[in-house]
Design a protein around this nucleic acid. Sequence first.
DNA 1: GCTGGCACTCGACCGCAACGAGTGCCAGTG
DNA 2: CACTGGCACTCGTTGCGGTCGAGTGCCAGC
Lengths: 343, 343
Amino acid sequence: MALDERKLEVLRAIVEDYVATEEPVGSRALVERHNLNVSPATVRNDMAVLEEEGYIHQPHTSAGRVPTDRGYRLFVDRLSRVKPLSPAERRAIERFLIGAVDLDDVVHRTVRLLAQLTRQVAVVQYPSLTRSCVRHLELVPISTTRIMLVVITNTGRVEQRLVELPGPTASDDVTELRRLINAKLAGQQLGDTPALVQALVEEVGPMLRPAMATLSSVLLETLVERHDERIALAGTANLTRGALDFQGTLRSVLEALEEEVVLLKLIGEIEADGRELQPRVRIGDENEFVDLRTTSVVSTGYGPGETIVGGLGVLGPTRMDYPGTIATVRAVARYVGDLLAQN
Amino acid sequence: MALDERKLEVLRAIVEDYVATEEPVGSRALVERHNLNVSPATVRNDMAVLEEEGYIHQPHTSAGRVPTDRGYRLFVDRLSRVKPLSPAERRAIERFLIGAVDLDDVVHRTVRLLAQLTRQVAVVQYPSLTRSCVRHLELVPISTTRIMLVVITNTGRVEQRLVELPGPTASDDVTELRRLINAKLAGQQLGDTPALVQALVEEVGPMLRPAMATLSSVLLETLVERHDERIALAGTANLTRGALDFQGTLRSVLEALEEEVVLLKLIGEIEADGRELQPRVRIGDENEFVDLRTTSVVSTGYGPGETIVGGLGVLGPTRMDYPGTIATVRAVARYVGDLLAQN
DNA sequence: GCTGGCACTCGACCGCAACGAGTGCCAGTG
DNA sequence: CACTGGCACTCGTTGCGGTCGAGTGCCAGC
């Protein structure tokens, strides 16, 4: 059955009122607060249809209606108007991010900013190594058999590994290795080029083969395989707002949030086909983790210019202000991207 | 008024029962569960005295007694027996820490282990830079006016900073700077030697003065002033256990836990006079942060051998198993210290 | 100094009735 | 045919009174 214009309008009104009041909304209150130009009885009929179709639900016989996950989904996809950010919010974003000194600082400020603006739990993934480009690669001899491998990416991330070489290596040889690796890898995006890394061994004379083989495998392990993804989290206190804090729900959500793997899946699963301008919304049981089936996640990718190097987003109760949250997440992602691009 | 032996015994019994049951404990239940060899009436008299002295408290007229912060304090100081770790716990600690590959890994494993064993919120401070010794210091030229400063400490912590030099600097000069800095600082504990860092400028010819001055100030800023302390946190889900989760207490605790400064103060305030073998316990309002006045903190320092390079501990409701928690915190700190010493 | 007994307090629990928000249904109307 | 007003009904919420029982303080007696 096709939902006519007014039924959609009723659904929109229900979602908006429920998000605002946190209480099931009845037919009378609805016509009072919105100018629907029909009587409560008519609205009730529409509600009955909406309920039959699974968009709303009543907790018990004589209560108002509450949107279902499916109702929120319809609302997000077809009914929500874009809500422009207030000038105050724009200013807050700029002011917050303008003083950042290094990448750690940027990420921390961003995650706190997101938590504060949306009043929800915010998650920011550090720029993924596999999606960043190598700006410079350095080998630092520590002793004759140990060197430190330092990778600096175009996103400002610096990663280091202590490498145990198979045998003593002269400092001239280290210089040569460095030159070769830089020549091949500088400017490359590591995630796309495991072959390049493996081919490094071919570039080198027999004397340096074992050393280069070790380096190459370390590079592969730490940079190409997404081994060392990092995550920043803020605003967990916001979980105590709203109805999430009953009967152990809060507990299981907190537990889920401590699993980095879970967070990465939530935020970092960016479409392989490149940039997505619109944040992705996962509502309630659309989430793959059962512990988070009472929550919604709004996430998007960010990165300098057109590329995407990481994800960020927020998590909150399904009863959330989707238009506002989506607008905020998108705006913050853009600002962070610009910031990285300036670097 | 001096508390005689039996009154102390009554207090101990009250604390133990209350911790176990989470419910106010009455006189009859007390004599039943502990063999005090006196009647409930006698215990009641003792309770009256204990209450007058401020060690226990009754929530309402006809309820049992609950220990006050002061009561817990007396219990911890004079009444609690050392509770040896179970073999299972020892094994858990060893198994958990044995596979750690680098410092990040050690810290993460430790904090999760602590949270799991104590079933509370665990906090681990990364080895403080100011308390660690410099093992090696490296300068990596990025461009003619930018170099990267990399510091490797004896605790395995690696810290890097991008330094903008006042003018172009030749690579030979960088080598010379590196040699000088290493000669002066290797093996030194940075926190103790701000003078050494400042004196670096004196060691160098007029041509290199400006560059060295920049480096020296960066070193001072990032390493000596405890600017970049890091913290790992785990087990926040454990806060939902117990009575902490009512009426916004949980909220304010979560908020406090997001402030790194607060955590550092809690865990990192180690006595300047060196190692403290016994964990420190802060009970309820002994805490300096009002948001945490309903919680207790058990913390201690850790480090390789005799020195202390950082702090770790747990935070939970004042109603906590102090003997067990103290034993666990101490044991974990020792294991981690040993682990760092092996490095 | 300890004990048993006793009166007392007060929160927890239970059942009951009144209330009211909200619904579904139906007959009536433009 | 779609909308409306009216009405009976459902059911969770609130408030009240009464009972129960855990726990106490006090006191006389051993």
